[in-house]
Every structure is written in structure tokens, then in C-alpha cells.
Write a protein that binds this DNA or RNA. Structure first.
Length: 897
RNA sequence: GGGCGGGUAGCUCAGUUGGGAGAGCAUCGGCCUUACAAGCCGGGGGUCACAGGUUCAAGCCCUGUUCCGCCUACCA
């Protein structure tokens, strides 16, 4: 029996470890490939294998876990597919750093050895974040854990690459791409983060060949002038009329470059003359192509000036900028320098300033894929929630540009393309061909580039389920039910999964996309290591427990708004967990020998409190269900919080205490609880706690499991229990109305006690007068309850009549309440209290009076609204009259004590 | 430049057909009342950013202004 009792304070650490191990051991997280149940599936946004759990992960995975546990309890066949992402650049960076410490680099050990070492690193540290997810309580189907570099997923990547190539949707070509000189790789447009930078606009004079005047150009990047091959002006620009085809002398390089006319040039900007560097600027490159301009690269892969940069060769690009400016100034060709703010691209992995760089790369032709992905959202095949993101999605999809997918790193999926060294034939295939299909030679060299990590991530919803094989998992679980992710990877990942899913699976990858907000610090700033404002989820879990943490995240997860998190808030919700724990502790004290009895369900026996709490919990079931179905996690969490704390604990438990302790006063004065009342109360207490735990489980799995385990009459894990369903029969308007009256009267009495500074140790005599027969009957029937909750000596219920002397007064509905304060009443205090009340009522009455004297309101507003206002006015008027009567009585006494 | 979101109590925020301004925290007062001081009871606190408009009625709908945040963009 003592095993049923709970310790005085909830201690999460041990409980969490124990139950997680149990769930895993019992395989409660497994999805079934073959099942009669309806499927529900989620693929996890794979965290970087280099990652450690941060707030974003915690929030994201809490939401997913709530959904999975909820659906599982509703009887769905749930698959939550977990795994990690090989994170090409990030992982390579980590391992390279390790090498650097040993005085080595990847080139010194070679590609094969390097990749081997990355794998070793992954074996050793790659499981870290997975373990951390377990601390959070994530109910992923761990047996299915995938990694983007697994053999199966790699096969999927090769298959997709080959097919897209064959379909003409992948091509190789020379274009300007974003180059990170530190990572020494190309980046996609998305991987570049733009930041406003306070730079300069340099005005440089390019003289004519005869050394005269010339043209002044404006640039933010003077170092690129070394690679200029033209100067462009707008053909409509009068200032430059007649100069088409003339030649300018490029300063510092002493190279002749032509003046060309091109509509692209903005006459209003700078001098209206634009220097053209086709090798280092995407627009210049386009113009260069149009005009057949020479292309001269002056910056190398390492960000240093190359052999075409003349005397600046070997200089870092920024160092070179300074020196070019100096040199121009010396030659008198620097006209002026203006402060100029412009945005500069940075590598999203290492923050290095990105260099627009001409090189041969592989691209996906995205337009045709995007079209289908747009339609899928337009038709509702996939819903984006909240809807505001739909517009952003369309915006990007409609303006999408080809996707650079090749990366010049070693860790990743190597592009399955081979070039024949004999005849130059390019072969794209699943595996290395035996011989060149063109010349039958065997000098085939594989492409050294690897693919963008997001390329493999784009396949995640089906590659994890076994594609390209036609698996039972795919049949059962594709498309997934919902994708839960942050808006920061809407384009990176969501959009690309949509495209790939539609193209290769002929169906969307997910029915719903739930986009959640970011977790920020208490001031609303993005958490970052450099700012030092990160809160470590593992620290939080250790200190407050995973449940408190999860509930906090859920309670703050309002759609479309960022979560500002601070430890205080988590601590607040730890109090909630503790409250639940203690309420359960109380219940279990009285339920230790409880046995489920059919007789207990006889509604005839239910007390008002019983009917009320059952009606209330039914309302909560409805709210929680609707909220979760709509991804309104905060609404669900808040309604549970409100119910548990302020309805179950504050009222129901307090009301049934006398029954459970056997101290109910009977009409003849005896103190005892009838056996049937006791049994019924225990039944309702038991079933309410039982149901509350089930409602709470998706949010706070550990503590609910622990209490569930101790609760008599439950079997097995709460994970397998049924999620509560609404039963209309429990809705009880009458009980809720009656309780509203009782709660009102009790609150009014407590209010007087509080305001009049009556110590709790004093038990008072109280009279409630009411003309309403039903109300009087109700109060009489629940006299004991009121006496108990208000710490009264006695409670008289009477028709309106004489005012008891030395009383403080309050009016609630049809009830006038007199709390006898013989000997302790402070008449001045009472006058002040009544006056305050009167003022409040008067103010409300003013507003109502205005409405009721407004002809238009009476004529145009719906009759039920008018009626409601009339009734309210009547009630308030009565209340005001009564209060004023009391005030005048009290004033008389105060005046003549 | 384009787009999106937000400005409601001291703080953080709810407020889903326009008809009673709410919660949590903080604060103040009173309580160790037999589940819980990680608690109980009670109180105070808001021209719902500003200005117009629609309406009998606006925190909610429309227009404009302003401040803050974010996303996006090839304006040298």
C-alpha cells in the first residue's frame, strides 16, 4: 500500500531515466509497417551530426513528441522517423580543426584517409544529439534511425541525381556562384547571409587612351577593377553620348578596355558609369556574355589576388583593396570616396565574406520542379500552418533560381559523374562504368565535388523510408502527416522536399507543414554562443525536469510569435508539475485501496461537485483536442493548466476533502460520511485524475507515467492508454450554473474576510438573504461546503429581511451576504469597501445606460443582445441599490456608534 | 526596394464569426488551514501605439501615420 504513496516533492531526474528506459525496452515507440490502424507519421528534421541540443531542437522536438504521443493514444499507428544529417561543410570543418591541432590538414592526409577520419569522428560523437533528444522524452522509433550518408540514403541520392540529369534537370556549367574562400567551396544562394555593412563608394577615373579626362566609375570593390574588361553606360545617358566603342585605359593595369552601352546601367546611380568585371560579379558576368567581353579572374580560390592581378598578386583581397585605393590616389585617379552602406554576403557556416566567383559547377534546374510544388500548396494537397507562411512560400517559389548543388569539399555524397580522359565524354551513372561508352577507353575520372547536404535532405521523407525500393514503410507512411519545423529552413528544406517529393513520389511529402517560431532569450534576442545568452536545454532538464521544460515550451508556443524564454518561466511551470504531483499525492492517499466499481458510475449518486468537475473536464477534453488538431499548443497547455490548478485543485479537491476525511456534518449534527457518498466521491476523484493524466501525458510524459503507475486500476504504460474523448452526457449546464453561484458566494465571503483583515483563525457567522427559492435551496444543500471553504461558524439562509447588525456586506447575483463581524468590525473600512464597490458598479451602469437610451441600439442591434444588456442593467441596478442601502446604514452606525 | 509579423496590466503574452478587457509572472495585504510555503486566501493595476473611417456597437473590420522585429533582393 505504501508503494501507492508519492514522495512529498517531485524529483524528476530519477523518474525520467527510469521511464524512458522502460518505454524503450517495451518498444512503445515503434511504428508498424503493417497495421489495421490509421497511420500517422512524422519525419524528424535531422539535426546536424555535429550538433548539440539547443533550444530550437528542444522546441521543435517537443512539439513533434506531443503530436506523436497524442496520436498514439488516439489509436493511430505512429511512426516518428529519427536521424541525423551529415552536414557536409560543418562536419568537415570540425574534423579539419582537429587535424589542425595535430599540425595536419586534409590535403596532407589525402581524401580517402580524411573521409575515413570523418566517419570515425561520426562514430564517436555523432550519437550525442540523439541521446540528448532522449532526455527530452522524444518518442522516436529509434530502431529506424537514419543518417544521410547511410548506404540506402546514398543510393537514393545517386538515383535522384542520375534521373534528374537524364531528364535535363541537372546540368554543369560555368557561372558566377558564391564562393567561400575559407571553406574553399561554392555555396548556394541560400547559404549566403547578407548583412548591412558600412563601406565606401570609391569614384575612380578611367582616362582615355590619350590620357585625357576619361570616365569616372563608382564601385564598392576597387580591387576588382584589376579584372575589368569594359565600362558600361546607359545608351540614353546624354553625358556619354558618342562614346560607344571608345577605349579607356584601365588604371594600374594599363590595359585598354572598351566603353559599351547597355540598358542595364542605372543613370541615376553614381556617375552613371559602371565598371564591368565579368569574372567577379553576377551582373557583370551577364553583361559580359551579352557583349562577348573578355573574362579575367583576378582573385583565386583562397581569396588572394592571382597572377592576373599584376603587382598585387599574392595579396589578400581586402589588403589589395587598400593598396589599390592608395595607388589610385597616388596617381590622382581617385576622385572621391563616399561613406556607403550596402549589404555584404557571408558564408553561413564560417561568416567569411563570400566572393562572387566564376567557376564550373553543377546546378538543378528548379523552375519545372517548383511549379508543381506551388500547385500542391495552392490546391491544399499540403497545408502550411500558420497560413501567413504560404505567401512567403509562393513568393520564393515564384522567383526561384537554379540551385548550385556542387561543393568543393570531401565530406558528402560524391557526384556520380565521370569524365573520360581520352575523349572527354561525360558519363553520369549509378556506378562507375567499366569503360567509356563513347570511346571504350577506361581512363575514367570521377567528379571530385560532392553534393550540397540539402540535396540529400530534400529526399529525407522518402529516402528514410527505403526509397528507391518500393517498401512497405513507404506504402504505409508516405506522405507523412505533418512536418514540424522552423521558418528559418522553409526554403532550404521544406520547399526542396516538396519539389523532390512531388517529382519522385508523385505525391507531396507531407499533408501539413507546421511552422513554429524561434526560441529567443528573455529580451527577444536570438540565442547565440557569441552573445552568451544561450540557455542549455540539458541544464534546464537537469535542473527543472523535462516535463516542466516541455510544458513551458508548449505553453509559450503561440502561433506566429517567437518564444522569449527565461529560466523564471520554466521555474513557474515546474511549480505546475509539482502542483499536479501533490494533488495526485492527495488523491492517492484516499485511493490506495480503490477498486473500480460499476456502482460508482451511477450518476444518481453524483454530488454537485462531482457533476461539475465531470462537466468541466469534458470541456477541457474538447479544448485540448481541438487545439492540438489545430496546432495551437499554447491553448491546449493553458486550458490544462487552468483546469488542473484552478478547477481541480482549488475547488474540487477542497470540496471533497470533508467527504474523504469523513467529517461531513449531517442534519442531526453527527459527523460522518455516508458510505455511498464516500464511494462515489472516490470514484469521481479517481476517474478525474485518471483522465487528467491522460490529457496531460503528451505534454508531460514522465510525471504522468509515474503517477499513472501508482494509480490503482490502471494497467500498463499510460502511453498505451486511450486519449480522452468527449462524452456529451457529462456536459451539465445546471451543475455549472449552480457551481457559479456557490463559487460566487464563497468568493464574496472570502473577499470580505480578506478586505476586512479577518484572521483565518476566526470562524464567523454569516447570513445570506435571497428572494430566489432555487438559490436558497442550493445554498442550504451546500451549507457545509460553504461553511468549510469560508471558515464559518454558521450560515443562515433566509429571505430578504432585516440587516444583521455589525456585518460587512456583499452582493452577488440574487444573494446579499452578511458576514457578522461583532466586535471586530471597522465601520470606516466597511464604508470604504462598499463605496469602492458602488463606484465600480456605477461605472458599469453608466455604459449600459448609454446603450439603453440609444434609439439606434434598441432598433438595430439583435434583440438577444438588447435583452442581455437590459438584464445586466437590471441586475446591476439592484446591486447598486442594495449596496447603497448598506452604505447608508453603516454610515449611520459609524456616525453614532 | 519588396514582403511579413508585432505595438493590450510593471514584465511576457492570450484574446478564431465585432456585442462582458483576460492569464502567468511581478507587486501589495493576510495566512505554516491535516496534498502542496515549489503553497493557500484576498487586493491593486490597462484612453488595447497614434489619427481618421465603417457600424447601433471596434482590441478585433478599412485607411493613413509612427515605432520595433524578421525575411527577401544582382541598386555598381
Amino acid at each position: 500500500m505504501s508503494s501507492h504513496l508519492l514522495k512529498k516533492g517531485y524529483e524528476p531526474q530519477e523518474v525520467e531515466r527510469r521511464w524512458y528506459a522502460y518505454w524503450e525496452k517495451e518498444s512503445l515507440f515503434s511504428g508498424e509497417d503493417v497495421s489495421d490502424k490509421k497511420p500517422f507519421s512524422i519525419v524528424i528534421p535531422p539535426p546536424n551530426v555535429t550538433g548539440v541540443l539547443h533550444m530550437g531542437h528542444a522546441h521543435n522536438n517537443t512539439v513533434q513528441d506531443i503530436l506523436c504521443r497524442y496520436r498514439r493514444m488516439q489509436g493511430y499507428n505512429v511512426l516518428w522517423m529519427p536521424g541525423t544529417d551529415h552536414a557536409g561543410i560543418a562536419t568537415q570543418n570540425v574534423v579539419e580543426k582537429g587535424l589542425a591541432q595535430e599540425g595536419k590538414n586534409r590535403h596532407s592526409i589525402g581524401r580517402e584517409e580524411f573521409v575515413k577520419q570523418v566517419w570515425q569522428w561520426r562514430e564517436k560523437y555523432g550519437g550525442l544529439i540523439i541521446n540528448q533528444l532522449k532526455h527530452l522524452g522524444a518518442s522516436c522509433d529509434w530502431a529506424r534511425e537514419r543518417f544521410t550518408m547511410d548506404e540506402g540514403l546514398s543510393k537514393a541520392v545517386r538515383t535522384v541525381f542520375v534521373k534528374l540529369y537524364e531528364q535535363g534537370l541537372i546540368y554543369q556549367g560555368d557561372y558566377i556562384i558564391n564562393w567561400c574562400p575559407r571553406c574553399r567551396t561554392a555555396l548556394s544562394d541560400l547559404e549566403v547571409e547578407h548583412e548591412d555593412h558600412n563601406g565606401h563608394l570609391y569614384y575612380i577615373r578611367y582616362p582615355f587612351q590619350n590620357k585625357k579626362r576619361g570616365i569616372v566609375v563608382a564601385t564598392t570593390r576597387p580591387e576588382t577593377m584589376l579584372g575589368d574588361t569594359a565600362v558600361a553606360v546607359n545608351p540614353n545617358d546624354k553625358r556619354y553620348r558618342g562614346l560607344d566603342g571608345k577605349t579607356l585605359m584601365l588604371p594600374l593595369m594599363n590595359r585598354g578596355i572598351p566603353i559599351i552601352f547597355d540598358e542595364y546601367v542605372d543613370m541615376k546611380f553614381g556617375t552613371g558609369a559602371l565598371k564591368i568585371t565579368p569574372a567577379h560579379d553576377p551582373n557583370d558576368f551577364e553583361i559580359g556574355l551579352r557583349r562577348n567581353l573578355a573574362i579575367i579572374k583576378v582573385i583565386g580560390k583562397d581569396g588572394r589576388m592571382n597572377e592576373h592581378a599584376g603587382r598585387f598578386q599574392g595579396k589578400d583581397r581586402f589588403e589589395c583593396r587598400e593598396e589599390v585605393v592608395q595607388a589610385l590616389r597616388k596617381e590622382g585617379l581617385l576622385e572621391k570616396v563616399e561613406a556607403y552602406q550596402h549589404s555584404v554576403g557571408h558564408c553561413y557556416r564560417c561568416r567569411t565574406t563570400v566572393e562572387p566567383y566564376l567557376s564550373k559547377q553543377w546546378f538543378v534546374r528548379v523552375k519545372p520542379l517548383a511549379e508543381k510544388a506551388i500547385v500542391a500548396v495552392q490546391t491544399g494537397a499540403t497545408r502550411i500552418i500558420p497560413d501567413t507562411w504560404t505567401k512567403t512560400y509562393f513568393e520564393w517559389m515564384n522567383n526561384i533560381k537554379d540551385w548550385c548543388i556542387s561543393r568543393q569539399i570531401w565530406w558528402g555524397h560524391r557526384i556520380p559523374a565521370w569524365t573520360c580522359e581520352n575523349c572527354g565524354e561525360m558519363i553520369v551513372a549509378m556506378a562507375r562504368p567499366a569503360v567509356c561508352p563513347a570511346c571504350e577507353g577506361n581512363a575514367l575520372v570521377q567528379e571530385t565535388d560532392v553534393l550540397d547536404t540539402w540535396f540529400s535532405s530534400a529526399l529525407w521523407p522518402f529516402s528514410t523510408m527505403g526509397w528507391p525500393d518500393s517498401t512497405q514503410t513507404l506504402k504505409t507512411f508516405y506522405p507523412s502527416s505533418v512536418l514540424v519545423t522552423g521558418f528559418d529552413i522553409l526554403f532550404f528544406w521544406v520547399a526542396r522536399m516538396m519539389m523532390m517529393g512531388l517529382h519522385f513520389m508523385k505525391d507531396v511529402p507531407f499533408r501539413d507543414v507546421y511552422i513554429h517560431a524561434l526560441v529567443r532569450d528573455a529580451e527577444g534576442k536570438k540565442m547565440s554562443k557569441s552573445k552568451g545568452n544561450v540557455i542549455d536545454p540539458l541544464y534546464v532538464i537537469d535542473k527543472y525536469g523535462a516535463d516542466a521544460f516541455r510544458f513551458t515550451l508548449a505553453a509559450f508556443a503561440a502561433q506566429g510569435r517567437d518564444i522569449k524564454l527565461s529560466e523564471d518561466r520554466i521555474e513557474g511551470y515546474r511549480h505546475f508539475i509539482n502542483k499536479l504531483w501533490n494533488a495526485s499525492r492527495f488523491a492517492l492517499m484516499h485511493l490506495s485501496d480503490f477498486e473500480y466499481e460499476e456502482s460508482g458510475q451511477d450518476t444518481q449518486d453524483f454530488s454537485l461537485a462531482d457533476k461539475w468537475i465531470l462537466s468541466r473536464i469534458n470541456g477541457v477534453v474538447e479544448t485540448v483536442t481541438e487545439s492540438l488538431d489545430d496546432y495551437r499548443f499554447n491553448d491546449a497547455a493553458n486550458s490544462l493548466f487552468q483546469f488542473v490548478w484552478h478547477e481541480l485543485c482549488d475547488w474540487y479537491l477542497e470540496m471533497v476533502k470533508p467527504v474523504l476525511y469523513g467529517t461531513v456534518a449531517l442534519s442531526d449534527g453527527a459527523i460522518e460520511t455516508s458510505p455511498s457518498r464516500y464511494a462515489t466521491t472516490r470514484f469521481v476523484l479517481w476517474s478525474t485524475l485518471n483522465e487528467t493524466l491522460r490529457l496531460l501525458h503528451p505534454f508531460i510524459p514522465f510525471v504522468t507515467e509515474e503517477i499513472w503507475d501508482k494509480l490503482p486500476g490502471t494497467e500498463g504504460s499510460i502511453m498505451k492508454a486511450e486519449f480522452p474523448v468527449i462524452s456529451e452526457g457529462r456536459n451539465n449546464r445546471e451543475a455549472e450554473d449552480a457551481m457559479r453561484v456557490l463559487i460566487g458566494v464563497v468568493s464574496a465571503i472570502r473577499n470580505i474576510r480578506g478586505e476586512m483583515n479577518v484572521p483565518p483563525s476566526l470562524f464567523l457567522e454569516t447570513t445570506v438573504q435571497s428572494p430566489d427559492k432555487g438559490v436558497k435551496e442550493l445554498l442550504k444543500q451546500h451549507r457545509d461546503m460553504i461553511v468549510n471553504l469560508c471558515r464559518l461558524k454558521s450560515l443562515q439562509v433566509a429571505p430578504p429581511g432585516e440587516r444583521p447588525t455589525s456585518s460587512a456586506t456583499s452582493v452577488f447575483g440574487a444573494c446579499t451576504i452578511f458576514v457578522s463581524l461583532k466586535g471586530i468590525i471597522d465601520f470606516e473600512l466597511e464604508q470604504a469597501r462598499l463605496s469602492k464597490d458602488i463606484t465600480k458598479v456605477s461605472r458599469e451602469l453608466d455604459g449600459i445606460g448609454k446603450k439603453l437610451t440609444n434609439e439606434d441600439f434598441l432598433r438595430k442591434a439583435p434583440q438577444e443582445v438588447v435583452q442581455k444588456v437590459r438584464e445586466k442593467g437590471k441586475r446591476l441596478m439592484e446591486k447598486k441599490n442594495k449596496l447603497e442601502n448598506h452604505l447608508s446604514t453603516v454610515s449611520q452606525i459609524a456616525g453614532n456608534p
